[in-house]
Simulated assay, not measured.
Amino acid sequence: MNSAADLAFYQNFYNGASLYLVPDASQVASPAVPAVAREEQANTAPITASAVVAAPEPAATAPPVVVPAPVPPLAPVAAAAPPAGKLPSLANLGLAATSTPVPPAVAPQAPPVQALLAAPAATVRELVTPSLAQLPAAAAAPAGRVQPTPTQSPVAHIPFSTLGSNPNGLIILVRLPEDAFRKLPRNVFLNNILKAIRLIVEDVVLVNVEHPTYPVALCSLRQHLAAKQFLAFGKNLLDVAVYTTQPYEPVLLFGDTAFLGASEVSMLEYDAGRKKQLWQAMQRMFL
């Protein structure tokens, strides 16, 4: 069909009317589309099979590690005192043990053995020497009697045995058989007498005169013992005291040697009167 001829026909048919021809869609150029509109059209375009691409699967991730929040320590709870007459609850014992730890007790360290061996004996146990009271001097020997001196005596050869290790302590003179003399440190009466003047058996030296009649010489004793206090249980036991002393009368011999004579231990144990006399004499001598 001729478009120009058709237009001329219709113009003559519609006289005075303006006519126009609709242009063909293929001949008319499409107007310019903004870049943003084209991008939107591209995004909204139908997706073809060729355009579908398999999306990568997300990589497997490890589960998150949950760190617990630190728990603040519990304050020590003081155990309540149980009421009178009731035992403490067993439930509170474990809590008190965990809340208030007790430091371990430290045992005191003993001094080394070398230090004890090197120390003198006086540091281990102080040697006790009884103090003497003011005593009267011994009487002079009777006329015609030879009084021995502290350095010379006619009985210096008389033997004696000793028990004890304190050369400066009290000297106890006895005359006993050997077996009875060995048992003397365990004698109850003797230990009570020493306890009364604040002494024990270790503070004294026991001397046994081994002759049945003669006394022991003071000069012989001074060669081994330096003590100046003598307590004699029996008669005729010390040469310098044979003629110048009386039983239960403490005296000073030669101005420096205190001497007290008494009856035998076996007699004193069962005689209350002699015990009283001995105690009064010892009070005058030591207390």
Rank of each mutant, 00 (worst) to 15 (best):
M1R: 07
S3Q: 13
F9A: 14
F9T: 13
Q11C: 05
S18L: 06
Y20K: 08
Y20M: 08
S26Y: 05
S30M: 13
R38I: 05
E39W: 05
S50R: 02
V52R: 13
V53W: 04
A59E: 08
A60R: 12
P64Q: 11
V66H: 11
P73C: 06
A80H: 01
A81F: 09
A81I: 13
L90W: 12
A91Y: 13
L93D: 08
G94P: 05
L95T: 11
A96T: 14
A96G: 14
T98D: 11
A105R: 11
A110D: 10
P111M: 13
P120H: 04
V124L: 15
V128E: 06
V128H: 09
T129K: 12
A133Q: 15
R145G: 03
R145N: 09
Q147C: 02
T151C: 02
T151G: 04
S153C: 07
V155W: 09
S161R: 13
S161E: 12
G169R: 12
G169M: 11
L173Q: 00
P177C: 00
A180K: 14
F181H: 05
P185Y: 07
K195M: 09
K195T: 13
R198L: 06
L199I: 03
I200G: 07
D203E: 09
V209K: 02
V209Y: 03
E210I: 06
P212F: 07
P212L: 07
A217G: 00
L218S: 09
C219E: 08
C219W: 00
C219Y: 02
H224T: 13
K228T: 12
G234S: 03
K235I: 03
N236G: 06
V240P: 11
T244R: 15
E249N: 12
L252C: 02
V265C: 06
V265I: 15
S266I: 07
Y270E: 10
A272C: 01
K276L: 15
Q277K: 15
M282Y: 10
F286C: 05
